[in-house]
Design a protein around this nucleic acid. Structure first.
Length: 274
DNA sequence: CAGAATACCTGCGGGC
DNA sequence: TGCCCGCAGGTATTCT
């Protein structure tokens, strides 16, 4: 159930095992992910060398000498590195067999993930073309968020989860960042001051970096005989704590829905302005 | 156009 | 115990 830090950790975890390796074969057991896996994928990747793996938004881009696999983990996708072939369990939809005998396995119970292929520049793919800046770059600044918010009536939480505004802030880290910045998630974006936007952007960067660092400690777990890397969770102050006492003022945290997603906040520490 | 609802799936925990 | 319900960290697509 990956957000950006989990995708970043996944990338770092599998990278040393797959880059430079030749793809012996790809086994697709179930092609019905969010979109069907292209039929030609077997032919496209066979005997190709993996040149690099990168991340844009929550997409993992595995580039070979012939083209790029565009991979998304959806809500429940994960990769496992298997040192030798293993029987497939339920939801083990894809295996990539590498020349070094290692298998890169993709498991995804809910099948909200996807595996697509492009022979061109993956950043020009329709799914990636209109994404906003990466949250950990300088482009994503308080001033940027403030300016783009001037014409946005929508709740600030919906705005920071809009991947056209900033790419890769999911429900957990949006919830946490708003708590840290002391901003009510339902505040109309256009009401935020420049100072509040700066605080929110800083909070987003801090929480994402903290999570990525925490994920770093699990990197070694990617190479397992039968193991599953499993996602980590940093200490969360708001997400998942509805009804529990606010860590700042002890009042019970409240819950509400924003864009069909649950949002946790403290109505004392994150007062609503309308 | 913006913004909100809908759709896609399976698994899990809680209540009865 | 077993069934039913609501909920889950994703986002493209469809709607109003």
């Amino acid at each position: 159930m990956p957000e950006l830090p989990e995708v970043e950790t996944t990338m770092r975890g599998i990278k040393p095992h797959i880059v430079g390796q030749c793809i012996h074969k790809i086994i697709v057991r179930c092609a019905r992910l969010r979109w069907p896996i292209p039929k030609h994928i077997e032919k496209s990747v066979k005997n190709r060398e993996i040149k690099k793996i990168t991340r844009r938004h929550k997409y993992l881009l595995i580039t070979t000498d012939a083209g790029t696999m565009i991979w998304h983990l959806g809500m429940s996708g994960r990769f496992t590195i298997l040192p030798k072939p293993q029987p497939a369990a339920p939801h083990d939809h894809i295996d990539i067999l590498l020349a070094n005998d290692i298998t890169l396995r993709y498991t995804d119970p809910r099948r909200f993930g996807c595996l697509l292929w492009t022979s061109g520049d993956p950043l020009q793919h329709p799914l990636l073309l209109n994404l906003g800046p990466e949250p950990l770059t300088k482009t994503f600044s308080g001033k940027y968020l403030w300016e783009i918010s001037r014409r946005k009536n929508t709740a600030i939480k919906a705005a920071i989860m809009d991947n056209r505004i900033v790419a890769g802030v999911g429900n957990i880290y949006a919830t946490e960042a708003l708590f840290i910045a002391g901003i009510h998630p339902k505040t109309p974006a256009k009401l935020l001051t420049l100072k509040e936007c700066a605080a929110l952007v800083t909070a987003i960067k801090v929480i994402l970096k903290k999570a990525i660092n925490k994920g770093g400690t699990t990197l070694k777990d990617f190479l397992h005989s039968n193991g599953k890397p499993g996602y980590f969770r940093i200490n969360l102050q708001a997400y998942g704590r509805a009804g529990a006492p606010c860590l700042l003022c002890k009042k019970p945290l409240k819950s509400c829905q924003i864009s069909q997603r649950s949002s946790i906040f403290c109505d004392h520490c994150q007062p609503l302005r309308k």
